[in-house]
Design a protein around this nucleic acid. Structure first.
Lengths: 199, 199
DNA sequence: AGCCTTGTTGACAGTCTGCCAATAACTCGA
DNA sequence: TCGAGTTATTGGCAGACTGTCAACAAGGCT
């Protein structure tokens, strides 16, 4: 696997930026944040290291872009909310979540835990936005999207449950999809019927 | 605030190690993992930087010790499991969890999310052990501690819910303790009565 | 071809980490 | 009291990584 060290080539900024970002997504997805140096990204992109800083500023900013890509990719298919009674809609939103997370399991589950940078202000903000989006989807699906910040916080908590449960299924492989499905539908039904009224 | 740069003093290894660890716990608790350098720890401990490496090896190993301290401190008061019917015991374990996490909120909640090092193999193992311990406590409290690995995984998922809900209460301050309590008791009851049977 | 824009490079300074020989603080026996 | 031995402690060295910037050259335009 030669690194194709051909003569210097000139790309349009958008193309070169996208190429570097693609390499960064792959590397940060495989290893953590600390284990990937800008030198690694530059080398695998066949580019001088300074160019990475030129396009993305600092390493942390590059990582922010990477996380943003990993977390917002599944959000595109958020459409398709079925009607019906509450159990039906609960079943639908859980199925949708499991489909999305299983398709992008490696990157999405790795990013939602902020593989290597939790605690940082900016990183936490990006993750919080992704969780907010998922919480919005849940509230909309169950038809309880009208509610104060407390209800929204409860929805975020439920997303936390969904994430940790999905991890037991996809990463630790100790739960089946059917078990995860039943756990998430039962708890969501309970929350809607018994807990949301407190908010 | 002078740094007390008195003459070199000689402490017993255990004492010096404990002192450095104490400083490290405080610093890593306040700021993240990346924002704290070994130089910072050494300076605030009034010690040469090389001594930190002498006692703890690498920076990551020091951080492992810090996380272990933060996460195992609350585990001491795990005793006192009351008898009674299921709702009573559920109420008791939730109250116990909220007491513990509110007392050590800053350090425990920060550590359980691995402030700055999630994705690392060793760090994840320490965190997983802490979650396992909490899951054991939950299963014991509800009297369903006999069960396969699947049931244990469900208990870990519930701990994930408890953590994310506690964060909405203690860090984001958008839920009251009463709301958190009600959410966690209702969902735990549902899980015990409707979901645990699948395992 | 020659010029000009600008994508791209290479190197420099600063910081951090792990490591190790040298130093000196404290103990113990004469 | 004092010298020798143990070892806690220090300071510096080499390597790696990051951010910055002036200089270079690839490709377009006349």
């Amino acid at each position: 696997m030669s690194v194709e060290a051909g003569p210097r080539r000139r790309l349009e900024p958008d193309a070169r930026r996208a190429q570097i970002l693609s390499v960064a997504v792959r590397l940060f997805g495989e290893r953590g944040y600390a284990d990937v140096s800008t030198t690694d990204v530059a080398r695998e992109a066949g580019v001088a290291r300074g160019l990475v800083n030129h396009y993305f500023g600092t390493k942390k900013e590059l990582y922010l872009e990477v996380i943003r890509v990993m977390l917002t990719v599944p959000g595109v298919a958020i459409a398709g909310l079925p009607d019906g009674d509450l159990p039906t809609r609960v079943d639908a939103i859980v199925s949708w979540f499991l489909d999305v997370v299983s398709r992008h399991s490696r990157s999405w589950l790795a990013a939602i835990t902020a593989g290597g940078m939790a605690g940082d202000t900016d990183v936490d903000r990006v993750i919080a936005e992704a969780i907010d989006a998922a919480a919005d989807a849940v509230l909309t699906a169950v038809g309880r999207d009208a509610g104060g910040p407390a209800r929204h916080a409860m929805a975020r908590s439920y997303v936390g449950l969904a994430v940790s449960t999905a991890r037991e299924w996809l990463q630790r492989d100790v739960l089946t999809r059917a078990q995860v499905h039943r756990l998430l539908t039962a708890t969501l039904l309970t929350m809607v019927e018994q807990v949301f009224q407190d908010a």
